[in-house]
Amino acid sequence: MLGVSLDQYGFLVQGAFWTVVLSLMGFVGGTIVGLPVALARISRGWFLCRASSAYVQFVQGIPLPVIMFVVYFGVSIYGFDVNALVAAAIAMTLYSSAYLGEIWKGCIQAVPKTQWEAGECLALTNLQRFIYIILPQALRIAVPPTVGFLVQIVKNTSYSVVIGFFDLTYSAKILNNATFKPFIIFTAAALIYFAICFPLSRYARRFELRLHRRNA
């Protein structure tokens, strides 16, 4: 098809599979680390607040490829045999936890303050207020930006190509070197990325509109 064999398209799909795997690992890791970051960002403790803010600023000020390199070379110092997947997953976790932490911090703060006060009037403890009153409301606000950020995660897994992780971008690069049909191969790769990202973008936007309508 268009000078590129079916096997070669299959190779792209294989790369796309690893892109999805890395995205999921990045999202799960980012959730596990990002939630405490979000909580620390809104905590009243001086140290927690400062430390988490510094963490977010650090990660957001360093390009993802550089984070990938630092992790890739850093893990090997400890004598572990570095698998590019492990390094890329750690880097994606660092990256997405900083952004997700910041997003979720905003969502928790977006819950009106009167809700906290009402909880206090009902003699709920801090933890109870957070779990039963604030969290359910914050979660609903958090869905659209979180899905929107998933798009960023999928796109940014492509940076793992710098440490030689076999994902969609890497497979497209190899195929281009072999066949030298850049327009067809990179268009095909772009279409696959688009097919993953566009539904997510659409879903995020629709959910956001619905949320606005309900609040209006």
Binding site: K155, Y159, A172, N176, F180, F183, A190
Partner: peptide, 22 residues
């Protein structure tokens, strides 16, 4: 806008750089 925002920068760069060379 949708095409650019839903594909990675690196693919766009490759497409442009290698594509124009061809």
């Amino acid at each position: 806008i949708e095409a650019i925002r839903n594909t990675p920068l690196i693919i766009q760069v490759f497409w442009l750089f290698f594509g124009l060379t061809v």
